[in-house]
Simulated scan of single mutants.
Amino acid sequence: MLLDDEPTEEDKANELEARIKAPIVWTRLESGLRIEDLQEKRFEEAATILREHFLNTEVTFKSINILDDDESVEEFLSNAKIQMKDKASLVAIDETSNDAVGILLMRVVDRVAFSRTFSRVKLTYGRNYSTVMKFYNKLEKPVNIHELYGVQKYLKIFTLAILPEYRHRGLGKEMYKCAIASAAASKINVIAGIFTCVRNQELIETVGFVKHNEIYYAKYIDGDEIVFSDTGAGNYTAAFMAMKICESDIIARPETPILHHDFIALTETWLNESVCDFEIFDDRYLVFRRDRASRGGGVLLAVRADRVRSAQQIHRLQSSSVVNVTCTNAGSSLRTHMITLNSVSCVLIPKN
């Protein structure tokens, strides 16, 4: 091997720093999407999705034409970026284009912050934004999650925004499931949020949420007028909903590594979309799966993240019996401890 190919100490340090700062990947989907922590480098991308694909479709904001009120739009986006900085939000990435296609904004709400929120008048300046926030406060204030569930803090869902071409494919449900896994990993055993359309309410109920307060749009009147008069077909109420995460769902990360293998290949995994990657391996491994739609079968390949510069699943084969991953070498001078394969596959061979 030529000495010129050897990375410098600075290169090694930069690679290590990049791995440390890399987001936790909560799951990878068969459709070629992954769901991971939302990091600062994607904040502007997230804000664009919210401005162009959320405010014009979300029931309450659309009903009052918030996009006609520039001050309200800017105030909404400003608050959204504050929520992003709490580092509790998630983003869905298309692995082919590396573009963000979905955002789930969340924050941890502790008991003191909750008391502070409802003990003072919140200053908002955009007229339309103020109207929606007043409605949300009326919906949420009667329910004290901390007392109801006996907790000091809970994870609050604020916004789910998905690009139009990625909707109605199950991505929303997967992001909600990852939110639950994220709360469990942080030992937060309650998650809650306001859901303004019937589709989201029914979807969130399938993962265990229950309604604690509900307001009919037709009965929410300011003066003599219904505030939200154009809510769309079937959207009759907004609901404040929550879920108690069972103790068995609280995931404790191992303090010391248990596995040291560069590759782990599994067949007959019997996994399905209800099982997140995080439940199988910690963030030291990149996980690639082919789950079978029917009972049984399935293959999985886990790759040590610190052994490769990058790894990507190849979707040329549609079979649920093959997972093929291409790897880029980490480039360390310790070649004997590094992966030198360009690609690796895990294949389930039928008995017959």
Rank of each mutant, 00 (worst) to 15 (best):
E273M: 08
H260A: 11
Q83A: 06
E15G: 01
I180W: 13
P164S: 03
F195Q: 01
V210Q: 15
I258M: 05
T206P: 04
H212E: 04
A218N: 15
E58K: 06
G297M: 01
L105I: 05
G223C: 05
E30P: 03
E74R: 09
Y217F: 00
E10D: 05
N235A: 05
I215V: 10
F195H: 02
F43Y: 15
C346F: 06
R335T: 01
I280A: 01
M106R: 14
N342Q: 08
K211I: 07
D291P: 03
T336F: 00
L2D: 12
S89A: 06
H53C: 12
L160H: 02
A22L: 15
I245N: 12
V25A: 10
T336D: 07
L148H: 11
L67H: 12
H212N: 11
Y176P: 09
E165A: 11
H261G: 00
I20K: 10
V325E: 04
D70S: 00
E205R: 09
A252C: 12
I35M: 12
F61M: 12
H168N: 13
A161M: 10
Y149I: 01
H146V: 02
R111H: 09
R284Y: 12
S78T: 12
I215S: 07
I258P: 08
A18K: 14
V143S: 01
C327K: 09
N235K: 09
A80E: 03
E58Y: 14
S229K: 04
S345D: 11
L317A: 15
N235D: 10
H146E: 00
E214K: 05
Y149H: 14
